[in-house]
Simulated assay, not measured.
Amino acid sequence: MSEILFIQYPKCGTCRKAAKWLKENSIDVESRDISIDNPTEKELSEWIPKSELPISKFFNTSGLIYKEQNLKEKVKTASEKELIKILASNGMVVKRPIIVTPAFVLVGFDEQLWSEKLK
């Protein structure tokens, strides 16, 4: 089992591009489909500080649910605990792909950053 968890949505173009990049760079990962097995509140509570990103960066801002539920406004006013609950409620609300390692968490596919951190 790999120490690197790759959380993705197979129908997402960016996730497919990231998966291809991982394969081309021979980076062994354990893959998880976010639409079937979404992150739990406990996982998100651990990953957010490890990512060194604000919680708002964990939201899939181009997703349908984000727009339908007007989460743009909620993200500005809700507590971190409330936001983690929203993120854990549906994997499609979460920005992807996500790389989780024991040392760091990467959100979204940034080829340069992934090269620096994973190679």
Score class of each variant (00 low, 15 high):
3 E>P: 02
83 L>P: 01
112 Q>D: 14
117 K>I: 06
97 P>K: 12
65 I>Y: 12
42 K>C: 00
34 I>L: 14
33 D>S: 01
17 K>R: 07
73 E>K: 14
35 S>E: 12
64 L>P: 00
6 F>L: 03
96 R>S: 06
119 K>M: 07
29 V>I: 10
83 L>K: 05
86 I>A: 08
110 D>S: 09
30 E>S: 14
94 V>G: 01
13 G>L: 11
19 A>R: 12
65 I>V: 14
82 E>V: 04
90 N>C: 07
11 K>M: 13
11 K>C: 12
102 P>M: 06
66 Y>P: 02
108 G>D: 07
70 N>K: 15
98 I>G: 05
86 I>D: 11
83 L>T: 02
23 K>V: 13
36 I>H: 13
70 N>R: 15
61 T>V: 11
92 M>T: 15
119 K>H: 10
13 G>S: 15
6 F>E: 06
25 N>Y: 08
63 G>P: 09
62 S>Q: 14
91 G>Y: 05
2 S>P: 10
6 F>V: 01
48 I>Q: 03
116 E>A: 08
84 I>Y: 04
59 F>C: 05
109 F>C: 02
29 V>P: 01
36 I>P: 04
56 S>F: 10
30 E>G: 11
115 S>W: 03
92 M>W: 11
105 V>Y: 03
80 E>Q: 13
74 K>D: 10
110 D>G: 06
76 K>G: 03
28 D>P: 07
43 E>N: 05
66 Y>G: 04
66 Y>M: 05
35 S>H: 10
44 L>A: 03
21 W>M: 08
63 G>T: 09
104 F>W: 07
73 E>R: 12
31 S>Y: 11
93 V>Q: 00
75 V>T: 02
62 S>L: 12
29 V>R: 06
60 N>W: 04
1 M>V: 11
103 A>V: 12
74 K>W: 05
70 N>M: 14
93 V>W: 06
118 L>D: 02
96 R>D: 05
100 V>M: 02
13 G>P: 09
86 I>H: 08
91 G>R: 04
4 I>L: 13
37 D>H: 14
4 I>G: 08
26 S>H: 12
116 E>W: 01
42 K>A: 10
52 E>I: 08
101 T>R: 03
98 I>P: 00
9 Y>S: 09
36 I>L: 15
83 L>N: 04
101 T>H: 02
106 L>I: 00
60 N>G: 03
45 S>I: 03
13 G>N: 14
92 M>P: 09
78 A>L: 09
112 Q>G: 10
116 E>F: 05
9 Y>E: 09
86 I>S: 08
42 K>P: 00
89 S>G: 00
90 N>T: 06
44 L>P: 00
28 D>V: 14
74 K>Y: 04
17 K>F: 00
83 L>C: 04
69 Q>Y: 09
104 F>E: 13
38 N>C: 14
103 A>K: 15
56 S>Y: 11
27 I>Y: 08
24 E>T: 01
18 A>M: 03
74 K>F: 02
109 F>Q: 01
114 W>I: 07
111 E>V: 07
73 E>V: 12
